[in-house]
Amino acid sequence: MRHLFKLTDYSFSYPDQSVLAEVSLSIEQGEKVAIVGQSGAGKSTLLNVLYAQQPDQSAYCVQDRQLIFGLSCYNNIYLAKLAEHTALQNLLNLLKPNPRALQKITVIARQLAIEDKLHISVNKLSGGQQQRVAVARACYQQKPVFIGDEPVSNLDALKAQQVLEVILNSHQTSIIALHDRHLALQYFDRIVGLKAGKIAIDKPAAKLCIDDLDQLYL
């Protein structure tokens, strides 16, 4: 079977700084992978590289959310499918939401508990709510693969669990960078631990305990 993602001895560096060093990794369809590690360990870069391998298959929820502040939540989510509509449809949608899109987006927003915020400008929301809008935008793309860069970092424990469940249930394959080691152990099949640009751990979650992961943060 063909690997969905595959890296062999992959290195990446900026002119004065190495980010990833000789990373080898392959991810199959259907896997739920958590990527953990300290800030600056190379998680975001790794996700970028993976996304670049399957841009058409993946919905990518980036860390800085890339929400457009002048737009309502609904339009921020709708943005994900801009390319599937004509410019005229998009223009009309700004004036009055497209009913089909609105219906689909409402379903997603309900799961993420932001249904009541859909028609509010996104800059009026709290950080956690904004984060869920960004997740909703990725989910609305309805791609088989979800790549997320700390998509639940701003949520309280309960919300974080809910949102993770929505993500994992609606995607065949998920690759998510996380800080929360408990969540990683609880929800994912496989955990990849990064330390200083190298893969320090790559094991099924069942074979790891919290102490193993804490090593990464020392």
Binding site: P55, V62, Q66, F69, L79, L82, A83, N90, L94
Partner: peptide, 25 residues
């Protein structure tokens, strides 16, 4: 300030990109 990097394909539709990404900001 926000440039949508996560959705590479939407830049192809210039008008829509302008309407949804550049103008509101």
């Amino acid at each position: 300030q926000v440039k949508i990097t996560q959705l590479s394909q939407i830049k192809r539709s210039k008008i829509s990109y302008f309407l949804y990404v550049q103008l509101p900001q």
